[in-house]
Every structure is written in C-alpha cells, then in structure tokens.
C-alpha cells in the first residue's frame, strides 16, 4: 500500500468508507431508534427512553416466541453437532461416496430456503408427519448440518494422522483413542460449529414459516408483527436479535480461529 501515491490512497479510503456506510449504516437505524418513542409513524427524537424494551418484555407473544426459538435452537444444535460430527468421522479418509454425501449435505444450505422449505413440507405431508416444533427442528438441522460437518471435517483433516497412530502405539484401544485424543482435539471445532448452527437456527425464517405448526419462532413472530404495522417494539426486537447474532458470531470465530489450545489455556 505504501507504494501507492497519496491521492490514490485518499481516494481508496473514501470509497471504502462510503461502501461501509452504505452497507452497514441501515443496521444502526433500528438500534438507535429503539431508544426513542414512535408516534403516528414518526420517531420522536426529543426524549430517549427504554420504553420500547419495557413494552417488549411485557409482550407475552414475543416471550413465547423467544422460548420456542431457544428450544428449537438447542435441539437443532444437539442434533446437527452429533450427526455432523459422526458423518465427518465416518467420511474422513474415506474416498468412496464422500463427494456425493457432501453434495447432498450442502444442497439444503445452498438452495433457496423456499425450495428447501417446500421440499420438506411436501415430504412431511407425504409421510404423514404433523407440522410441529419437531418438523421445525428437522428442517433447521437439515439446513445447518453442512456448517457443522464442514467445520468438524476441516479440523479432522488438519489434525495430524500420527496423533491417532501415536495413541494406538502407546497401547490405547480405539475407544480410548476416540475419547482421549480425537474428541478433545475436535471439541473447539464442535463448539464453533454449534454456535454457528445456533445463530443460523435463530435467524432462520423461510423454512420455519413453511414447516411450523401453530407455534412461531422469533423471526416468524417478527414477520407477523411487521405485517400488522410498524410498532416501536419491533425496533427493540431487531436491535436485540442483531446484538445476539453478532455476539454468537464473535464467539464462533474465537473457537474456530485459534488453533493452539495450549496457549489458550495458560
């Protein structure tokens, strides 16, 4: 960068700032306006207040939706981490069938959610499974499985094969090697994958709308609120969801990026 002449550096900085402002400033509008009251569709900028958050806390529909979201999220995380890890372990170092499996796992993640959702909906109807939280959990798991699988597989691939050999060489059984060597070395990848899976499940809207029964998750609830008109507690809800999602992503990065567990611990 130092080689560039000064005017171009300034120009590039200006462009970068402009792009950043255009892309990310809309995110701050609901956060800021959540601290002000809204009357007749206009934000009253004169007096900052927490009243929107109070209103949100008293909204039982929202609280119920939050509980539903958390239940779905936890179930999805457990299911996807267990099955994603098992799949990664099974297909690690195995050539045959791996690319087909990866394609299948990634398909729901890459397809438009409405297609995945419709496919699931048709499937559930065909096998006679009532739409409920169970179908939502299945839908979310299918959607986030790719992330967990990929994260764990990458860690497995970067793990030296000699670690496992050394364990056997020192007299350990397959079971001991799994619990004492493989799993501890995968754990941070599994935690990272779990956090990402939870964040994805938390935000997922389209598939959820299609396969849910009578209960709605937070994003679905938000969708419904939007249709009924713009109310101030929406701002508060958006702000909270945004902060929570950012927090999860930061956490996930922390678990996925540092590879030296030793230095982490001391």
């Amino acid at each position: 960068m130092n080689a560039l002449p000064r005017p171009s550096t300034i120009f590039l900085a200006a462009i970068t700032t402009l792009v950043a402002v255009l892309l990310y400033s809309p995110l701050f509008v609901p956060i800021v306006s959540s601290f002000f009251t809204v009357s007749h569709g206009n934000v009253d900028w004169s007096s900052p207040t927490l009243s929107t958050y109070v209103a949100l806390a008293e909204n039982h529909d929202i609280l119920a939706a939050l509980r539903t979201t958390l239940i779905v999220g936890v179930c999805t995380v457990v299911l996807s981490v267990v099955s994603g890890t098992l799949l990664a372990l099974y297909y690690h170092g195995r050539r045959s069938g791996r690319s087909i499996l990866q394609f299948i796992i990634f398909l729901p993640f890459l397809m438009p959610p409405i297609i995945s959702g419709l496919a699931l909906l048709i499937f559930f109807r065909e096998i006679g499974l009532e739409r409920s939280l169970l179908t939502v959990v299945i839908g979310h798991t299918v959607f986030v499985l790719a992330i967990v699988y990929r994260t764990v597989l990458m860690r497995l691939q970067s793990m030296s094969r000699t670690l496992v050999e050394a364990s056997y060489d020192l007299g350990a059984t397959g079971w001991q090697t799994f619990w004492r060597i493989i799993l501890p070395n995968l754990s941070s990848a599994m935690v990272g994958g779990a956090i990402l899976a939870f964040a994805l499940s938390f935000d997922e809207t389209m598939i959820t709308i299609l396969v849910t029964g009578t209960q709605s998750t937070l994003p679905v609830r938000l969708w419904a609120m939007m249709r009924l008109g713009f109310s101030p507690d929406i701002n508060a809800l958006v702000a909270l969801i945004l902060m929570f999602t950012v927090l999860l992503c930061v956490l996930a990065a922390r678990f996925l990026i540092p590879r030296q567990m030793a230095t982490e611990r001391t």
Binding site: A166, S167, D169, T173, M261
Partner: peptide, 30 residues
C-alpha cells in the same frame, strides 16, 4: 496396541491438548 514397541514419530505426534506429563503418562494411564 498390543505390541511391546513404542515409536518416536518424525513430527513427534505430541498430543496438543495434554501437558508434558499428560503426554508422557498416556501410555500408562490407558
């Protein structure tokens, strides 16, 4: 795992999540 031989690997293959004493004691603790 039943052969009475032990190997020193080229990349050492030390278990990164265990301390030095954890590594050295592994063969006994299993």
């Amino acid at each position: 795992n039943r052969r009475p031989f032990n190997t020193v690997f080229q990349d050492y293959a030390l278990f990164p999540h265990m301390t030095v004493s954890g590594n050295v004691g592994y063969g006994l603790s299993v």
